[in-house]
Design a protein around this nucleic acid. Sequence first.
DNA 1: GCGATCATGTAACATGTTACATGATTGA
DNA 2: TCAATCATGTAACATGTTACATGATCGC
Lengths: 200, 200
Amino acid sequence: MSLPHILLGLLRQPASGYDLKAEFERGIRHFWSAELSQIYPTLKRMEGKGWLTSQTEPSDRGPDRRVYTRTEAGHGELLRWLGAPPQVGAERFAYLAQIAFMAEVGDFRRTLEFMHALRARLAAWEAELRAIEAGVFAAMPGYPDDLPPEEIHHHVTLRMGLHTLAAKLAWCDETIARLEGRLAATTGRRSALTSTFQER
Amino acid sequence: MSLPHILLGLLRQPASGYDLKAEFERGIRHFWSAELSQIYPTLKRMEGKGWLTSQTEPSDRGPDRRVYTRTEAGHGELLRWLGAPPQVGAERFAYLAQIAFMAEVGDFRRTLEFMHALRARLAAWEAELRAIEAGVFAAMPGYPDDLPPEEIHHHVTLRMGLHTLAAKLAWCDETIARLEGRLAATTGRRSALTSTFQER
DNA sequence: GCGATCATGTAACATGTTACATGATTGA
DNA sequence: TCAATCATGTAACATGTTACATGATCGC
């Protein structure tokens, strides 16, 4: 049950479902995502619980907007969630599952190809985070020491992304080197076009 | 749609739902989890698709076991999944969401407390992975170079866990140091028992 | 006029969690 | 005899994804 709490956190100012989706796209997306078709009914449910109120207002362009405001009860629920212990351990990595069973293919070159594709994806993601940090730094010479207190937490989540992506890239490199070492050991004995370890 | 594929991967030998749950607990759990109440209907669905066949057999103790066997079609589906590109980017970290909105509490000491709790959880997890690696090393002096080819992939996923957990611990330490620095800068000016940045 | 953006939603489906129901066997 | 383990499942609920439906306005 995290999406309602994330929405409560984002609703420092009143906002529509559409606005909140846009907030997800710039920032939150790095550690959580939600589709509009999930956000709209969730907001409605939250209003039913008394965490939000809504009023419709005309839009500058397009149809009327339904703008949600956080209630006292909603703010209380947010604080309760922030007081709960860290929710850790339920992470799911589909690509690790793929690697774990890759032996079934019987050819290291597939694993190698997979690791290269994975590395490229992770490197692009890291570049994105680096660019964000560089942008903040450019606008603030004393970064991160001069960050105002209310922006520290956002900075902390960005740093987590940078740390773990660097670690994953190092892991990709380690893995690629190890697999290439294995492949080199079998090349010469047999063509690189034939099976690499089904021979066993 | 990953659980069916993980089950296909685990079914190198015929196994019951109960057996497969046990396999999750020793290993898979580090990057995926599933309850029995999800595994049983999933196996039934997979049988309906022709990926598995089942036969019941008496148990040494307790009720009859329904043992599933992977079919040719099931093996083909597994290979198709292993041939797909890495599924990356949809990761969800509830604890990062909590940190991102922790400013709402208005007291760094809560963030600090949270980071200490998080660090303890991650350190315990890292210790567990280290123990697994140490166990493998003890049983095999030439680890990891001497690992047989079919065990390399398992080793690779273990290494990913060790890399990212070390990175997260470094991030925790960096964050804790930064927060303590901030706190020290305000202590002396006002008691540590009062608000730290709502003053702004 | 046409595609992009603004704006809200429903419906069908897929996936995952928690609680409940049942009952045998084994070891302390 | 009592708790743990073996063993299978259903039901209710919660969460999340994909596809579909509708329609206005703005810039090219």
